[in-house]
Write a protein that binds this DNA or RNA. Structure first.
Lengths: 170, 170
DNA sequence: TCGTCAAGTTCACGGGCAGGAAACGTCGGC
DNA sequence: GCCGACGTTTCCTGCCCGTGAACTTGACGA
């Protein structure tokens, strides 16, 4: 499990996104800043300047804690291969670009407009093209343990399916 | 929430007991010892010798994390997604606005009039619309651990369900 | 004790609309 | 030719949201 380093407080938004996606992280706290309010258990911090040994120790502690109860972070390489832990799936160009946009804001809502722009930088085709690609992408992502949730009239949200983070209706 | 200080590795058994009882704790790690393997989220450590400021900071962080663990604060983002700890649920427009108003005064009473204004800035529909939306919102919030309590002839109040803050009748 | 009113709760229904899904056709590479 | 990627059309499902009405509960006074 990789621990992500985040500068604090400069990258506070990035930290929120990582927290939402349950990515373990180590905050590098500016020498003059206040220590961050904890948002969950997958986070630790060290104050700068710090020696490398401290940083490594803290990072590995967070990593071990995370390994107890968290999913691997999906990773999309430049060849359109999406890897989630040991599992992977190839993605065709359009779906790869959509996935890239969703991964940039993993765990947060991405609007249909933003997705359209990501999928078709040269201008979007018909309105339903996005719907269909989301459908196809869903079927492709399910086997690797990812799910696309719709937030009606707001957009879509990518999350790990193994954890029941969002509440489903009966 | 009080944080217990534990010497490491001398008091490792005490640490295990505290972990078992889910008591938040701060390990004071001997200068020559290895950092402890994390067992849960209610623990942090500092290496001795450490200045008092560091110890206080770490202790208060663990304390706040422990408080969050018991009762995370709800947060409504701009995309109509309500997050409570790791759980979340999408909210449709009207209910998002109602929730926003309730969150602004979390734990305190919000009058029906104020809720109406928040939910329908352009003017409220029929009188019953608010009732129905409160009902729907209740059902949506219950799974994420929030509850809307009625204060008769005063208004409504949003609170965390996990903590029994108000007294319920049998 | 009882009746009455006001306040809240809950259900069922329907219109409107966003999103889901199937089927089909085209294009290009192997 | 065969197959996969991609776009469009078309239809359908499900959600959102308001309304009306039945029911419950609490307050108050005769």
């Amino acid at each position: 499990m990789d621990v992500v380093f985040v500068r604090w407080p400069q990258e506070s938004e990035r930290r929120d996104r990582l927290a939402q996606a349950e990515v373990p992280r180590l905050l590098l706290v500016d020498s003059t800043a206040r220590a961050p309010d904890p948002v969950d258990c997958l986070e630790d911090w060290v104050r700068l300047p710090a020696n490398d040994e401290d940083v490594r120790l803290r990072a590995s502690c967070v990593a071990r804690r995370a390994a107890l109860h968290v999913d691997p972070l999906p990773d999309l390489d430049d060849d359109g291969v999406l890897r989630v832990g040991a599992r992977w799936t190839p993605l065709p160009p359009v779906e790869a670009r959509l996935t890239e946009a969703l991964l940039e804001r993993f765990g947060a809502v991405v609007s249909r407009e933003a997705l359209s722009r990501a999928g078709w930088p040269e201008g979007a085709p018909g309105r339903n093209a996005l719907d269909v690609h989301v459908l196809r992408l869903r079927r492709r992502l399910a086997p690797v343990g990812l799910g696309i949730r719709t937030v009606r009239s707001r957009g879509y949200l990518l999350e790990s399916e193994s954890r029941q983070l969002s509440v489903r209706q009966a």
